Simulated scan of single mutants.
Amino acid sequence: MRRIAIVGAGSIGCLLAARLTTTPAEVTLVARPRAAEAIGRDGITLATPLGRVSRVPIRVTDDALSAGRQDAVFLCVKAHALGGALDMLASLSGPETAVVPMVNGIPWWYPLGQPEPLGSYRLKSVDPDGTLWRAIPADRLVGSVAWVSVEGDGAGRIRHVDDQRFVFGDPLGRRTAAVEGVVELFSLAGFQARGSLDIRSDIWTKLWGNLAFNPLSALTGATMGALCVDPGTRTVARTLMEEARAVAERLGVRSAADIEARIAAAAAVGDFRTSMLQDMEAGRRLEIEAIVRAVAELGALAGVPTPTVETVAALVEMRARQRGGGPAGLAA
């Protein structure tokens, strides 16, 4: 892949921009005007897990049209912000452009090619009016799962806390040149990248942790390590994972991951503030729909009760409303 664009200058977008710039690809970061100005002036300041700090010059713009057509576009925005990125995506895309949404939770394309009743279903929690389904061609999608912990500290300043694994796969389970190209690109950047013929299983394995720890951290203000150590929150996290596993299994997903092993892996990250906790503290909208509500929606479709998931969703939504709200009481 010769030309790639990264839409979104949050923690993940900046990490990808800084690392992928070391590859032969021509990388353009598309950001909001204020962030584009700061990053254009100062570059991206990246602190590594080993404590090394570097400043990386980046090609950045707030005008997607000026960047031209790309071989791949990485959408590094929250799931609820994807609709707002569609104009930028259209400016960056040609008929062969691979589209890689780097989002947490259940993606809007999840029902694509699945058996009924899922196959014809449209996820209201993440794509309520079908905008994403209509706007992004299914044959250009590359599904992704990011196993990486990154914290942001202002425009273009990030701390890479832990891990650097990425999984990519075609939503229809095919071996495609787009998936192979993205895996090769990330490998050249020094990431641990692999392709998957069952990307939905990988999504659920990652979602276990997001579902369990993101909303609990937003509710309590605790880091991931603290949530794993405390007996009460550890029990709630395990129950959330068990409900999610039951939904996934009813939908035909089989995962070799073990819940206790997943919790232990989260505990090993230590005092990391989850992305939802970072958003709560910064007054940003929370990823409740894709990470929590979508699991409950799929559970209802599959006939699997998810009482703890629904309880936690209601609590974190109330917490967000109490903090100050935008649409539906959630911070904008």
Rank of each mutant, 00 (worst) to 15 (best):
R2H: 08
R2F: 02
G10T: 01
G10C: 03
G13N: 00
A25M: 06
V27P: 01
V27T: 10
L29R: 03
L29N: 08
A31D: 04
R34F: 00
A35V: 01
A38W: 03
I39R: 05
G43Q: 06
S54N: 10
R55D: 03
R59F: 09
R59K: 14
L65C: 11
D71A: 11
F74N: 09
H80N: 13
G83T: 11
A85I: 11
A85Y: 07
L86D: 06
D87M: 10
L89M: 06
A90E: 07
S91N: 05
S91A: 15
L92V: 05
S93Q: 00
P95W: 03
E96R: 14
T97N: 01
T97Q: 01
T97A: 07
A98T: 02
V99S: 03
V103R: 09
P111N: 10
P111Q: 06
L112I: 04
E116L: 12
L118P: 00
S120G: 09
S125K: 15
D127M: 08
L132R: 05
P137W: 09
R140H: 11
L141P: 01
V142P: 00
W147G: 14
S149K: 12
D153S: 15
D153P: 04
G154T: 10
R157W: 04
R157E: 07
I158S: 07
R159I: 07
H160T: 06
V161F: 12
D162W: 11
V167L: 14
F168I: 07
D170G: 03
E184G: 15
F186A: 00
F191V: 06
Q192L: 15
A193S: 03
G195L: 08
G195I: 03
D198L: 07
D198P: 04
R200A: 04
S201R: 15
I203S: 00
I203Y: 10
W208T: 11
A212W: 01
A212V: 01
A218S: 12
L219N: 04
L219C: 08
L219Q: 02
A222S: 09
A222Q: 07
T223C: 06
T223E: 00
M224N: 10
G225M: 02
G225F: 01
L227R: 00
C228P: 03
C228V: 05
V229P: 04
D230E: 15
P231C: 08
G232H: 14
R234W: 09
R234L: 12
A237G: 13
R238A: 15
T239K: 13
A244H: 08
R245I: 01
A246P: 09
R250C: 04
G252L: 10
V253F: 07
A257S: 14
D258I: 05
E260L: 10
E260G: 11
R262F: 03
I263F: 02
A267N: 02
A267C: 09
A268S: 15
D271L: 02
F272A: 00
T274P: 07
E281I: 06
E281W: 12
E281S: 10
G283R: 13
R284S: 04
V295P: 12
E297Q: 15
L298W: 15
A302E: 08
G303I: 13
V304M: 13
P305Y: 02
T306A: 07
E310A: 13
T311K: 07
V312Q: 04
A313D: 10
A313M: 01
A314Y: 02
L315E: 02
V316F: 05
E317F: 04
M318Q: 13
R323P: 06
R323L: 13
G325P: 07
L330D: 13
A331S: 14
